[in-house]
Every structure is written in C-alpha cells, then in structure tokens.
Design a protein around this nucleic acid. Sequence first.
RNA 1: GGGGUCGUAGUUCAGCCCGGUUAGAACGCCGGCCUGUCACGUCGGAAGUCGUGGGUUCAAAUCCCAUCGGCCCCGCCA
Length: 598
Amino acid sequence: MPEKNNSFSPLPPWPRTDYCGNLRATDAGREVALWGWVATRRDHGGLVFIDLRDREGIVQLVFNPAHDADAHLVASAARSEYYVAVKGAVVMRREGTVNAELPTGEIEIAVTAAEVLNPSNAPPFPIGGAENTAEEVRLKYRYLDLRRDGMQRNLRRRHQALRGARDYLDANGFIEIETPILFRATPEGARDYLVPSRVNPGKFYALPQSPQLLKQILMVGGFDRYYQIARCFRDEDLRANRQPEFSQIDIEMTGPRPEDIYAMAEGMMASIYKFALGVELARPFPRMPYAEAIERFGSDKPDLRFGLELKNLTAAFAGTAFKVFADVLARGEAIYALALPAECQLSRRELDELIESIKSRQGLGLAWVKINADGWQGPVAKFINDDERKRVVEAAGLHIGDTLLMVAGTPGKVCPLLGDVRLQLGTKFNLRDDAALKFLWVVDFPLFDYSDEEKRLVSVNHPFTAPNPADLALLDSRPLDARALAYDMVLNGQEMGGGSIRIHNAELQLKVFELLGIPRDEAAAKFGFLLDALGYGAPPHGGIAFGVDRIAMMVCGTDSLRDVMAFPKTQKAVDPMSGAPSEVDPRQLRELSIKVAL
RNA sequence: GGGGUCGUAGUUCAGCCCGGUUAGAACGCCGGCCUGUCACGUCGGAAGUCGUGGGUUCAAAUCCCAUCGGCCCCGCCA
C-alpha cells in the first residue's frame, strides 16, 4: 500500500482514467482511477461512503475494510475538501441503494486503493449546500466558491458563449487581433485608469476604455474584418452589472451598411445562444428608432417582455381648464401617462409613495385617476371635463377599472421618468414573460446631446460616430436634430451591445470635434494619429461591441456580473481575496517619480 | 458625493422595538459508537472583540453619535 503521504509529491500516484461525474451504468465492470475532492463522508465505523467531486460531478465511493483495510483507513481519516486519488471497480449498486437524484446514482466505486494528495482545512462555508453565504466570504475564498456547482456551470456556459462567438466570427472571415492594454488617455468618456511610465517620468499610460480607436486604425491598416475579446477598463462606480474591468466582443468591418452589421451581429448572437444553451433565436431582430423607443417605453433600451406602454395625452388635454396641465401645455410641453390595467391595483398609499419618489427625482408631479364604472375617482378627477375624458379614454385605450398615471413636463424628462415607473410596475406586478428573449435593435440615435453641466454638445455614442448622411446639413443649423448611424442591440431591457458607422474622413471628423467644443489644436494633440490615419485612404468602416459579461449574465440567468466572472471586485473595487488595490513599496513610487498626497 | 439595507460562534440566523442570568439555535468542527448510507444515525465536547470607536446609564448585542465594510440604487459610466 502507498507509504504515508507526508512527502507531498507534486506528481499524482496514478493517472486519472475518468472524471467522477461522467461514470454511468455502462461503465460497470471497469477499473477506474479518479482524483477529486471529498464532498461528503458517511462513516459507518465499518463501511465508509465518500462522495467524490470533480468538475464533472459527484460519484459515490465505497470503502469496505474487509476489501482493503488501508484504503478504509484513508477514508476514515479523510475530511471535507481533502483532495484524494482512488482506484477501484465501477460496480452496479445493489437493489434498493440506487440514488435517483444523482446522474451517477446507479453505480458506485468499490475502492481498492486510496491516497490523500492534499488534506484541507475545514472549509469556511459549505461547498455543496445552499448558496446563501455572504458574498464577501465567497469572494475572499473564491477558489472554494469556484468549486461550487453554480460557478462551475456559469463559467463553463460563458466559455461556450464565447466559443459560439469565435466560431461564427472565424467562419465569417474576421481576424482576431490583440491591441495594447497600455494606451493613451483620451478626453471624453469615462474616467481612465492610469499607469505611470517609469522610463518617461511624469507621463502616464491609460488602460483602454475600449479598443475603439485602434480597431478603426486596423481598418485603415487593411485588415477589413477584425474582432477581439477585449478587456476594457473604466474607473467609475460599480453596479450589479458594472465592473471596472470587463470584456467586450469588439468587432469592426470595412464598408458595412448598418444592415450588414445587424445581420452579422444577429448571426453571432444566434451562434452564442446555440453554443451556450442549444437555443435557436428567431431572426431578424425587430428594429425601433430611438425616438419611438423613448416615446413608447421611455427608454433607449426598452424591455419588450411586457406592454404597459406610455401614452401621449398632450393632444387630448389641449385647451384644458385644469390649471396644472394648462400651464404645462402653454409652455409647449407634454403630458404622458401609463394606463395600469384593473388587475394591477395600487393602494392609495402606494400611489402616494410613487408621487413622492417622482417628486424627489425630477421635481415633477404625478396625477392619477381611477376609471370606475360610476365615474372617475382621484384628486384631480374633478378638473377633467367630459370632452377631455372621452379623448383621454381613446388616446390611452382605457377600460373600466384602469388606473391612469399622468405626468406633465418636457418629454425629455417625462418619458424616461414614466419609463422607470413602467419598469417598477412591471416588477411589482410580475408582468414580464420570464422565458421570453426579446431582442431589439434601437436605431437612429441622435448624434449629439446637450450637456447642461458642461454647457456644450456631447456625443451620444462617441465622437467618431458618423452622422446620418441625410442629416449632414443639420450639423450647422440644428445639430441636436441630426441622427447618427448608430445602433444598440437590446435584450429584455438590457443593452447587449452597441456600435456605429464611423467617420472615415478627416475633415468631417474635425468638424464633429469642433461641434463638441474640441478645438483643432487639441484634436490634433490628442487624436492626431487618428486624423493622420484617416488622411491615408482610410476606407469607410463601422462596427459594434458587445458586453461579454452581460451576455454571460443572460445565458446564465443571473442578475449579478459577479456570478459570471471568476475574480470580480466588490462595490468598492476591491478584491477581497488578494487585497488589491494595495499600498506599494516606497521604492516603487520613487522609481516612478510619484509622490502620494493623501 | 448621496439614499436605502445589512453586520452576533467557521457558516446561516434568532435575540435588539421594550437595556438587567452564563448571548442561543441549526449546520459545520473535534472525540466516542456504528457494515448500505447518500442532508447517514447516535452520544458527548469545543467554539463569540455581538464590525470598530465614543457616548448615555448602576448596567449596552440592545438606546444615541461617529466610523469601517458587504449588498442594492441615484449621481457617474461617450
């Protein structure tokens, strides 16, 4: 029998023949050799049972002292999460001892040799049990957390999703090219992660927020079709679906029309769902202009799994005597509403809370009326005359029992607000079809938005987005009305990806910079390499980028990015396992010519 | 930067409103017994900076203030 394992040989005592979780009745009679962790041990004093776990699942080992006394001793001494190697025969379980809960439940391993390759401290939380351990603890001992079924399944499904993407892109002539992680800081966009340059004291690299400029330059460089699973970095506050470090499937092609991008991206998404879940997606995905998405759903990423669309009641209230609405209309603003059906009843208290939450956010008011069989009820019902009621019923498609929630103000504020209320109500009344996969292209984004804070135009997408050629003339007169050749892919109310056709002409690019308030010299200093590149026969080009982590969340059916990343960070951007970020040796700082001022 | 919520054995929680024994339970852990279990059973045992600091009080896990940390959200994230 094996000599006592106190030498901790780095080599296993025998090769593995199978994964535990793969063994079946058809393997009965085979001699197998397994490695794995002790999931549970059931010690009967004589007989010992151990459930051995590896990445494929669990199989029951039986240690019979009459069969092999040494192996039985090893089993008696083994504890949870010991890593052990065993040899034995696959045998059918005897009548009445089959475990229908386990895929391997028809068989067991009659162990003839066993060795502990490495013992384990008592695990700080159960690996096999319920998943209700505090996330802080799970992240600190992530290597144990990763052994759990859920994480094993999620990361493997993520792998399959990426395989689906790569398979499709490769088959369609896209070339995978890596771009630098050490890049340069550029204005616009998120806060950069900076990396000091030792050999250039006082100068810094920035980690890329995305490979946007580099992929454009790859088009100028003649690669025609490029993709990359690119790591991106943004130093902004975290959310359940936002980590400082994340991955994109980054794609760029030469000469596409938006339709070409849609078809390619739909094909890729179909391949992802096929590889990850074996699901066939219905294509093509529907499309909706940005303006319509805002008007109907109050969002540029509408969740189409339920209705409850916004209703425009501006016309219905034209000429109203109700002063609040009349004032709003006099300013040329609008009135929008949600018509909550009879089966979704809000209590008076819930209505009051809704009004409060709206006031606290935008300073807007919410007026509600209930459409009862014997008339309208609510604080403002008496201000609405019969003519208006008739028009409102028609415009909002009201039925008896409905509750009408109305908000008045500028459409730019009212619609997003009602869009949020719509989502809240959708959750509250469980209106969503959970099984649905509602893909959607949101198209015709505006090119610019006006930033009240910065008192200037800002890009809705990014400064390299091409204007819709039909709207070129608007750039000088009414830039805010100009549409972009930009598009987002939305799934169930989540933005999965977005992209645009790019500007490939240096003059037009300079003009857009100018509209954004970036003077020529600054543009030359910060984007000179791009402008230069555009000057050398740059072909028209465009592309799209997808959030890998969000795709993984969707195919894994989880609400948290941390469930689909091996080593995520907490909301404070900390890694509880390694302790990053950490202080560094003063010598390192000196080398970098950095002084820390706290 | 702001709002909400949570923090008590290794883990998951109760206790906190309404201050007053030795701070409990389950799982896990340690030891004994056990040859068909699979959440094995059974007998016994160890295990706590009640996040931290301050305050009120004769007395604080419990009340007050501050602070740190986890999670959710707003701002922010082209």
